[in-house]
C-alpha cells in the first residue's frame, strides 16, 4: 500500500515535469495559458510557504511579501549584475536558492520576536517587517529605488515552476508528517502545553520561519524572472494580503488546500480581468465572506489521501531497540 502510493506520487511528479517540459515546446498550449499556469505555480509555492506559518503553526504572518521581495531582488541582482550573462541560465536554480537563502536569513529576524510575542503583536511585527523591506528597497538607488529593477532574462519556465512546486510540496509534506510537524502543529494548538510536553518551540519556530521564508524567496526569484521587472510596490502589504486570501480560501493547515487556494484565486482574478478596477473589489469581498461563512477554507485541516502517509500502526517495520526497564510495555 505504502509502496503503491509512493509509486503513484513519484510517477505523477515525473509526468507533471515531463508535461511542463514538453507542452510549451510543442506549441500545443497558447503562451497566455502557459503564463497563467506559471502564475498559478508561483502562487502555489507562496501559499504553501505561508500556510506553514499561518496554518500549521497558527502564528499570524501578514508580511510574507517581504520575504518574497528579498528573494526576488537578490535573484535579480545575481542574474543581472553579478553573473556573466551566459551563466545566468544554467545557474538559475542556484540563483533561486540564493534568493531563498537571503529570504530565510530575513526569516530569522521575524522568528526571534515570535519567541516572545504571538497573535496580534506578531502580526504587527511581520507587518512592520514587510513595510521596512519595501521602504529599504525604495531607498536603495542602485536597485532602482521606487522605479524598480529590470533587465532580468526570462529564465522562469513552466518546467522550473513545476519543479519548485513539487519540491516545496515534498519538503512540506515530509516536514508536516514528522515529529517536527507535529510539534509545529502543537504550537498552534497550545504553545504552553507544547513546551511542557518537551517540545522545543523556539527551535521549531525557527525552522518554520526559515523554511517558509526560503520558499517565499524562491517564489520571488521565479516571479522576477517571469515578469522581468520588479519594483518595491510589487511586494507591498497588498501582495501579502493576496497570499492570505489564497491560504484562507484553500484551507489552513492543508497542503491540498494551498494548491487549491492558489489555483482558484489566480484563475478567478484572470477571469475577472474584464471587470477592470472592479475585480479588486471582488477579492477583498470574497475574503470577508469567506471569513464569515467558512473561516477554515475549503480544505481546512483536511488533506487529500494522496498527500497523507499511511496511518501509523503498531508493530511492523523495524522494532527499534528493545524498550528500557521502565518501558510502558511492562504494565499489562
Amino acid at each position: 500500500m505504502l509502496r503503491q502510493k509512493g509509486f503513484l506520487i513519484w510517477s505523477g511528479a515525473a509526468l507533471i515535469l515531463a508535461l511542463a517540459w514538453g507542452l510549451p515546446a510543442s506549441g500545443a498550449l497558447n503562451p497566455y495559458v502557459i503564463q497563467i499556469l506559471m502564475y498559478v505555480g508561483i502562487n502555489m509555492i507562496l501559499t504553501l510557504s505561508l500556510n506553514l506559518v499561518n496554518g500549521y503553526m497558527g502564528e499570524f504572518s501578514v508580511g510574507h511579501a517581504g520575504f518574497m521581495g528579498i528573494g526576488a531582488y537578490v535573484a535579480s541582482v545575481l542574474t543581472v549584475a553579478v553573473l556573466p550573462p551566459a551563466w545566468a541560465a544554467p545557474a538559475f536554480p542556484a540563483v533561486l536558492v540564493c534568493g531563498g537563502a537571503a529570504a530565510a536569513l530575513a526569516g530569522l529576524l521575524v522568528a526571534y520576536p515570535s519567541f516572545r510575542t504571538r497573535g496580534d503583536y506578531l502580526a504587527i511585527v511581520t507587518l512592520a517587517f514587510n513595510m521596512i523591506v519595501k521602504s529599504v528597497l525604495e531607498n536603495i538607488s542602485w536597485l532602482g529605488g521606487p522605479r524598480g529593477y529590470l533587465g532580468m532574462p526570462r529564465l522562469t519556465t513552466l518546467f522550473w515552476v513545476a519543479a519548485w512546486v513539487i519540491l516545496t510540496l515534498l519538503v512540506l509534506r515530509n516536514l508536516v508528517y514528522s515529529n517536527f510537524g507535529r510539534g509545529i502543529t502543537a504550537i498552534r494548538e497550545d504553545e504552553v502545553a507544547a513546551n511542557l510536553t518537551s517540545v522545543d518551540t523556539r527551535r521549531l519556530k525557527l525552522y518554520a520561519f526559515l523554511i517558509s521564508a526560503f520558499f517565499a524567496g524562491v517564489a520571488g526569484g521565479l516571479y522576477a524572472h517571469l515578469l522581468q521587472f520588479i519594483n518595491p510596490r510589487s511586494f507591498s502589504i497588498l501582495k501579502s494580503t493576496d497570499m492570505l486570501v489564497m491560504v484562507y480560501l484553500g484551507g489552513v493547515g492543508s497542503l491540498t488546500g494551498s494548491l487549491l487556494g492558489a489555483t482558484i484565486f489566480t484563475v478567478l482574478l484572470e477571469l475577472l480581468r474584464p471587470l477592470g478596477i472592479w475585480r479588486w473589489v471582488v477579492g477583498p469581498l470574497m475574503l470577508v465572506l469567506l471569513m464569515i461563512y467558512r473561516p477554515q477554507g475549503v480544505m481546512g485541516f483536511k488533506e487529500a489521501r494522496l498527500f497523507k502517509p499511511k496511518l501509523p500502526t503498531p508493530g511492523g517495520g523495524s522494532p527499534g531497540p528493545p524498550a528500557p526497564a521502565a518501558s510502558p510495555l511492562r504494565g499489562q
Binding site: D120, A123, V281, V288
Partner: peptide, 24 residues
Amino acid sequence: SAPRVSAVITALGVGLFLENITLG
C-alpha cells in the same frame, strides 16, 4: 466569537474593499 485571526483578516479585506470601491 471566531478566532482573532479571522477578524484581523476580515478587517484587512474590508479596508481593501473600501479602497478599491472608491477607486472604482
